[in-house]
Each structure stands twice: as structure tokens, then as C-alpha cells.
Design a protein around this nucleic acid. Structure first.
Lengths: 132, 132
DNA sequence: CCATTAATATTACAAGTGTAAACGGTAATT
DNA sequence: AATTACCGTTTACACTTGTAATATTAATGG
């Protein structure tokens, strides 16, 4: 049983809501899903149930309804998905991927400047901690 | 019928081979798959067939065997997958994604320098073509 | 020309996904 | 107390994916 369960596209939407605020009831999850998602209540509950089965979330009973909370962190899920994506599409080469994003115009000028700041910081940090 | 078909993880492996060299026979595809992939011939042919059905590849008959070639470019598939990944995991925010890759230590120092060069170039280009 | 063989095409089958409806129990309402 | 309304659980069903085995067709060697 691997640490991080495989989370499907739809399930990601549920998880994002739960990570944002938890513990949370099924009803609230439905309400907090992005407006462009139009799933029936039942559908949402199905996804919640599958996430329970996968041990991606847990719950505590509270009277009539359950309050769900994550059992895996967003951090680790993002990392796992990123690795998988990276491997599938770029054969694992992270620099290739980032380069592609830069070249392919996914990023606005403002975003590019932001990145430059981050890179700068990283560089400085490196210089202050040589070979760490 | 959308332009870019959805290509599964296994199918990506096939596509990568076909993009690298085409037209190419099924036999050669089997041979050129990464060594760590151990699929039976039949499995590979199944994937090839599914890609045909999806119109991701085409073929020309040549005697006994077919020679396959891509009908969609790697560029557009990479772009589609990236968009999908971005939307699923980062809610579409490309800068968040790149930042995450930087922060999360996926990149070596050398790669980071490389990126800085690319950003630099982009910046320069922008300055030479103001508001283009 | 026909049998052999090699390559493609069809079929199989379980697990995962998207999308719900139906069922069941418990709490609230009449 | 009986009924309703709500919430979670079970069941459903078609499509995709991973992983092949089997069937069919076409080319090639005799």
C-alpha cells in the first residue's frame, strides 16, 4: 500500500476543497466546489466515499453528519502528481518542463518577473550557504 | 471530437517513440521502448491500435507491415497535458507551479542557472519589442 | 496456387472513473 | 407514534486503461 493514493481528476476537486477548509461536511463540500462544476450531490458523495476507501481522507461523526478531513497533505499529493506528470510528459526532466512553460507563453510578464525574483533569492541563499 | 485526443500514460510511451522516429513499424516501436518497460508485443500492439482509434497516429501499409506516424505533434500534446495538469493540481496558475518546482528542489543548481539565462533572454527580447 | 507465417484486428477481463439512482437508518416534523 | 427528510452506503452502468490471448488476413515460400 503506497503512502500516497492515486487521486483522480474529479477527486482532486474534492480534495482541494477539503484542504482549503477542514473538517468539513459533505454539504459544505458541495457548496464550496467551483461554480463551473455541476455535479449532483450523489456524485460528490461518491467521490468522497472513494477518497475514504483510498484513505486520502478521514472523518469524525458529529450527530447526523460527518466531518471530513485530509489524511494526506496537499504538499505530498502535489509532489506525487508532479513527479508522475514529469515522468510521463518530459521523461522526468524538470528543467525541460519549466523551460517549456517559459517558452510556450503560459506565463505572463508579471509572472516571469516574479520567477526571476524567486530565482534571485535562491541564488543568494546559495551564496550564503556555499555547497549546502 | 476535440483536436487533441486524451493519451493515457502507457500510450504516451508509445507516442514518444513514434515522435522520435517515424514512420516506424510496430516491431521497431517495441524495440525502441525504454528498457525498463516490459510489455508483451501484444500489449504494445493494443496501445498502437488504441492510438489509431483515437486518431493520434496514422499508418501507411508497406508490404506485410504498417509504418506508423503521428497525427498530432508532440508540441500540442505536451501543451494539452500541461494545461490539464496545471488545472488539476494548481488550479491553472502556471507561476504557482513553476515556483513549486523551484522551491521543492526538483532542480539542480545548474538547471536553475540555465533557467535564469532563459528568463534573461526573454526579458531582453521583451525590451527590444516593447509591448509586443 | 496453397500452406505457412507474420502482422494486424478482435475479443477478454479486471480495476478505475464519471455519473448517478436506489436503499437504509436516524433525526426532525406533524 | 408515524412520516418525512436527510445523510451516508450500496448498487449500477458505460467508458477507459492495463495487460494480453485468440482470431483473421495477407504476404511469401514452395
Amino acid at each position: 500500500m503506497q503512502r500516497i493514493p492515486k487521486i483522480s481528476e474529479s477527486e482532486w476537486e474534492i480534495m482541494k476543497v477539503i484542504w482549503r477548509s477542514n473538517p468539513i461536511t459533505a454539504e459544505q463540500i458541495v457548496l464550496q466546489l467551483p461554480a463551473d462544476i455541476e455535479w449532483s450531490d450523489q456524485t460528490v458523495r461518491t467521490f468522497i466515499n472513494r477518497l475514504l476507501k483510498k484513505n486520502a481522507i478521514g472523518f469524525e461523526k458529529s450527530g447526523r453528519s460527518y466531518h471530513y478531513y485530509p489524511l494526506v497533505s496537499e504538499q505530498e499529493c502535489v509532489r506525487a502528481e508532479s513527479q508522475s506528470f514529469l515522468k510521463r510528459v518530459f521523461g522526468g526532466a524538470a528543467d525541460l518542463m519549466v523551460t517549456n512553460f517559459l517558452e510556450d507563453g503560459h506565463l505572463s510578464d508579471k509572472e516571469i518577473e516574479q520567477l526571476q525574483r524567486i530565482l534571485m533569492e535562491k541564488q543568494e541563499k546559495k551564496e550564503r550557504h556555499p555547497k549546502t
